[in-house]
C-alpha cells in the first residue's frame, strides 16, 4: 500500500466534533492536533472527557459529525485499508474470552486475518513476528495457556503483544496500563520506547500513569471535550491537578 509517511502528516485531526445519538452534548468539540512519526503522545483527561472517542476517531471506528482526520494521508473511516497500519488496543474489548484460543493464537490471529493467504496459512515471518512479540512482553511461559486462564494483567500484555506482531506504523492505545502492575507497565513502556526509536508514532490515552514513566512522553494533550492544555507531560499534569483532576 502506498502511504504518505512524511513527518508531520502521520496523524492529523482537524476541527473534529463527535456526537453520540440523541445526546445534545458533543463527546468531542472542535478538537485539532497533529502528531508526527517518532513521537510519543499522551492524551490525558478525566473520565468522560472524550479520550476513547478521540482514539476511535483516529482508528476510523467513529465518524466525526464535523471536521476530518487523516492518518498517513488517508481518512481511516472511509478507507478501512489504512487501519491495517494502525495497531489499536481498545480499552474495553468485546473479545469472547471463552473462545478456544491460546495466548499465541490471540497474538497470531489478527496478523493472519490481514496478512496471510487463505491457501498457505501462517508463513515463517508470521510465526517469527508472533514469537518475538510474545517474548518481548515476557509472555513466553504463558503462550500455550487458553485466554480464559490468563490474569487481567497478562491479558493486557497479550493485547500489546498482538499489535506489536502486526508491526504497525501507528500505535493507538486506550488506557493500556489500566489493569497492569508496575512490572507489566515497565515492560510495555520499554517496548513502546523502542518502537518510538524505530520511528513509529505512539498515541496513548492515560488516566493515571506511574510517575516514573511520565517523562517518556514527548507531549501531553489534556482533553475535556476540547483540548484545554497541551505541552510537556509534567506541566500539563500539573494544570490538570490544579483544575481538580487527580
Amino acid at each position: 500500500m502506498k502511504v504518505e509517511v512524511r513527518g508531520k502528516s502521520a496523524c492529523i485531526v482537524r476541527n473534529v466534533t463527535v456526537k453520540y445519538g440523541s445526546n445534545p452534548h458533543p463527546a468531542l468539540e472542535n478538537v485539532s492536533f497533529e502528531a508526527s512519526l517518532g513521537e510519543m503522545v499522551m492524551i490525558a483527561g478525566p473520565n468522560g472527557g472524550g479520550k476513547s472517542t478521540l482514539l476511535k476517531v483516529i482508528v476510523g471506528l467513529v465518524k466525526p459529525v464535523k471536521g476530518n482526520v487523516k492518518v498517513l494521508g488517508r481518512d481511516p473511516f472511509k478507507d478501512p485499508a489504512i487501519r491495517r497500519l494502525i495497531g489499536y488496543v481498545p480499552q474495553i474489548t468485546d473479545l469472547n474470552l471463552s473462545a478456544p484460543l491460546t495466548l499465541r493464537d490471540l497474538v497470531m490471529l489478527p496478523r493472519l486475518a490481514i496478512k496471510s493467504s487463505p491457501w498457505k496459512g501462517p508463513r515463517k515471518e508470521d510465526i517469527e513476528s508472533v514469537e518475538r512479540s510474545i517474548k518481548e512482553l515476557g509472555l513466553e511461559d504463558h503462550a500455550d495457556k487458553r485466554i480464559s486462564e490468563l490474569s487481567g494483567g497478562m491479558l493486557a500484555r497479550a493485547l500489546i503483544a498482538r499489535v506489536l506482531a502486526l508491526d504497525p506504523i501507528l500505535y493507538v492505545m486506550d488506557e493500556p496500563f489500566e489493569s497492569m502492575d508496575w512490572e507489566s507497565e515497565e515492560i510495555t513502556m520499554k517496548v513502546l520506547r523502542r518502537e518510538k526509536e524505530r520511528g513509529k508514532l505512539i498515541i496513548v490515552s492515560e488516566h493515571h500513569i506511574s510517575d516514573d514513566h511520565i517523562d517518556y512522553f514527548d507531549r501531553t494533550l489534556l482533553l475535556k471535550r476540547r483540548i484545554i492544555a497541551e505541552g510537556r507531560p509534567r506541566d500539563v499534569i500539573e494544570v490538570y491537578r490544579r483544575l481538580g483532576g487527580s
Partner: peptide, 9 residues
C-alpha cells in the same frame, strides 16, 4: 472480537 476486526480494517 468484532471491534478488533473492524479496527483491523
Amino acid at each position: 472480537e468484532p471491534t478488533m476486526a473492524a479496527a483491523l480494517g
